[in-house]
């Protein structure tokens, strides 16, 4: 399978910011892909997107931009799913 590198930037839409449950969902999703996934927000990076804590420590608040970088055979789908999780609004 060809190696892909996909990069996409999303904005945190939830007023609570990137919160614990989203981080957990993201880490679980990342675990299902072969691609290596890195998240970047401002000066902070989560080198291992399979770790919920790494994602949490990005400290991405409401309105923050988060860049998702995936490298691997399923990078496209991985970015798609993680972007969907991160840009969701869940608080009600």
């Amino acid at each position: 399978m060809p190696q892909q590198r996909v990069v996409r930037t999303i904005i945190i839409a939830d007023q609570q910011g990137l919160h614990l449950r989203q981080a957990v969902e993201c880490a679980q999703a990342a675990g299902r892909y072969q691609s290596q996934i890195i998240l970047v927000s401002g000066e902070r990076r989560a080198e291992n997107c399979r770790s919920p804590f790494e994602i949490l420590q990005l400290g991405a608040g409401y309105g923050a931009a988060v860049t998702i970088e995936a490298t691997g055979p399923d990078a496209e789908q991985a970015v798609e799913e993680i972007a969907a999780i991160l840009s969701r609004q869940t608080s009600h």
């Binding site: 614990l20 957990v24 399979r50 919920p52 790494e54």
Partner: peptide, 16 residues
């Protein structure tokens, strides 16, 4: 309940 599901995931965090 989901709060504790998240705790389980934090406990199993590979980086931890």
């Amino acid at each position: 309940g989901a709060i504790f599901g998240a705790h389980a995931a934090l406990i199993e965090d590979p980086n931890l």
